[in-house]
Amino acid sequence: MTTRDETPAPSVDQITAWFAALGSGARRILFAGPRAEISTEFVDEILTKGRKLAGPWFSESTTADELHLPDDVADYVDGLLAELQGWWIGLSNDQRLRWADVESSTVPDGLQTAYPGLFEFVVGDEGTYADPQVVDFIAVAAA
Rank of each mutant, 00 (worst) to 15 (best):
W18T: 05
Q85H: 12
T16S: 12
L80S: 03
E41H: 12
R27S: 09
R96A: 01
A26P: 05
I38C: 05
F19Y: 05
D94L: 11
G90M: 08
E45M: 01
S92K: 05
T40F: 10
D101G: 11
K52G: 04
L69N: 07
P56R: 15
T16K: 10
R28I: 10
R28W: 07
L80R: 12
L53R: 06
A82M: 09
A36D: 15
R28L: 02
T48S: 11
D13M: 08
L84R: 08
L97M: 13
L91G: 08
G90K: 08
A26Y: 06
L97H: 13
R28F: 08
D71W: 00
L80F: 06
R27Y: 02
P56L: 15
N93P: 00
T40G: 08
N93F: 08
P70L: 02
H68P: 00
A21I: 02
L69R: 06
Q14D: 11
L81H: 08
I29H: 14
W99R: 05
I38H: 02
L97P: 00
F42L: 07
K52V: 12
A100N: 08
G86N: 09
T40P: 15
G55K: 09
R35H: 13
G79R: 11
A36T: 14
I15R: 14
G33Q: 08
E103G: 00
S92C: 01
E41L: 12
L47P: 07
S59C: 11
R28D: 02
I46E: 04
W18D: 00
L53Q: 07
E41K: 10
W88M: 08
I38Y: 01
L80K: 13
G86K: 14
G86D: 11
D44L: 05
V73W: 03
G79K: 04
A32N: 10
L80V: 10
T48D: 14
L84W: 03
Q14N: 07
L84P: 01
F58T: 10
W88K: 10
G79D: 04
R35W: 02
D94A: 14
D65N: 15
G55S: 14
D13H: 12
S39T: 15
L81S: 14
D78L: 07
E83L: 09
D75H: 13
A17I: 00
E60V: 13
D94K: 11
K52W: 01
T63D: 05
R98K: 11
D13T: 14
G33K: 03
R98M: 06
F19I: 02
S11L: 07
A64G: 13
E45N: 03
L30V: 06
A74F: 04
A36E: 14
